[in-house]
Amino acid sequence: MGSEGQTTALALPRPLRNWAEATFHALIQPAAGPQVDFTRPAGEAALAAPDSVAWQVFRNPVALFVGGVAAVVLELAEPRLRAGVWNHTSFRTEPVRRLQRTGLAAMVTVYGARSVAEAMIARVRQAHAAVRGHTESGLAYSADDPVLLDWVQATACFGFLSAYHRFVRPLPLAEQDRFYAEALPAARLYGASGAPDSGAGMEACFAAMRPRLGASPVLSEFLGIVRHAPILPAGLRPLQQLMVRAAVAVTPPWAQAQLGLESRLRPWEARLLLRAGAMADRLLLESSPAVQACRRLGLPPRMLLTGRAETAP
């Protein structure tokens, strides 16, 4: 499995590569936040296999940004999740730091050594146990509710997969089903024991949750925050705003209508994102958790371009 015809790493001039390395590292592991060494412990496997669809999807920054925002839109559409996120996190006051922590957690879950990932997930679950309250309409919620955990897992898988499929390369249905199935071991550790295991399972999840979802001013507030927060360098801010619109565009049409959201990309905008996503898929940065995980496992980073786990010479 891999991108056909794209098995050669993208070569960048040294100044541009150095800038890309520094920018990517600052986004994933800012100096003020926790640091994770994806190269240690040497030889220890991750929760996801190197030849998994997940290793392909999660190393692409375009898919990560677009898919992550799409996932949060669908999460915030659920009233209990919306109240939990908006009332118990620092998203409104420190959006960049919150997004960075969430992004790092995703990287550890997919690429981190199993012992590191399991310890991190245990801390997340411990923190979730203290999050509970009531929505404005009086609905009780708790962050460790299995139904809500399943929805968070489902929307994350749907968001990242849909963004990769649309703005990086099309994935056959069999690979899409694999992506959902590969996420189950980590999902169970997070407490999402009923998360979908296939595309059909995702559709069933949508059907079950659809009556519970609704519009809210919080959705517009969230989109405004991620549109204008200094997440990417100033020169890439127009791309950031385009990717926020693209995130809404990858949510199901029925969800956009039900949530009062609409985003239609012009053909040239879709082509621009597809080109950016395809280029990013050929970029191998030493600061990337995927590349560092290859080092940990004794695999050549070039295997990320083909999806075939070959032992390094």
Rank of each mutant, 00 (worst) to 15 (best):
L148G: 15
L81P: 08
L139P: 10
H128K: 09
E118N: 09
D145G: 00
A122T: 00
N60K: 06
A122L: 05
F65M: 12
V131G: 09
H88L: 03
A117H: 06
N87V: 10
H128C: 10
P146C: 09
G67Y: 02
E136N: 06
A70H: 03
R59C: 04
F91T: 06
N60S: 06
V72S: 02
R123N: 07
W151N: 05
Q126I: 07
V110T: 13
A156R: 01
F65L: 10
Q126V: 02
Q153P: 14
T89E: 15
E136D: 14
V62A: 02
A127C: 11
R98Q: 12
G103W: 03
W151H: 06
G112D: 08
L149K: 09
L139S: 10
A122G: 10
F91R: 14
A119M: 11
R97W: 03
D150G: 02
G84D: 01
G133A: 12
P146K: 02
M107A: 15
V66M: 06
R114T: 07
M120F: 11
L76Y: 02
A122N: 03
Y111E: 11
V116F: 12
F65Y: 06
D150L: 05
R132F: 09
T135M: 04
T155H: 04
V96S: 12
R98P: 00
T155K: 05
V96T: 01
A77D: 01
L149W: 08
R114C: 07
Q153T: 01
R82S: 05
T102C: 13
A154Q: 00
M107Y: 14
R97C: 00
W86Q: 12
E118P: 04
G67D: 02
R80C: 12
V108L: 12
R101I: 12
R101N: 11
V85Q: 01
A105Q: 11
A83F: 11
L149S: 04
V69H: 00
A117V: 06
A119T: 12
I121T: 04
V73W: 07
W86Y: 10
R123Q: 09
T89D: 15
V62T: 02
G68I: 00
S137I: 01
E78A: 11
A130P: 11
Y111K: 11
G84L: 06
V124M: 04
P146F: 01
P146D: 03
R125S: 14
R101S: 08
L99N: 03
E136Y: 05
S90Y: 04
G133P: 07
G133F: 03
W151R: 02
A113K: 11
L149F: 05
S137L: 08
R97Y: 03
L148S: 14
L148D: 15
G112K: 01
V85A: 03
H88C: 10
M120V: 15
V152I: 15
A105G: 13
E78D: 10
I121W: 11
V147K: 12
H88T: 10
E94Y: 01
R123K: 08
R80P: 07
A143Q: 06
R125E: 11
R97M: 04
H134K: 04
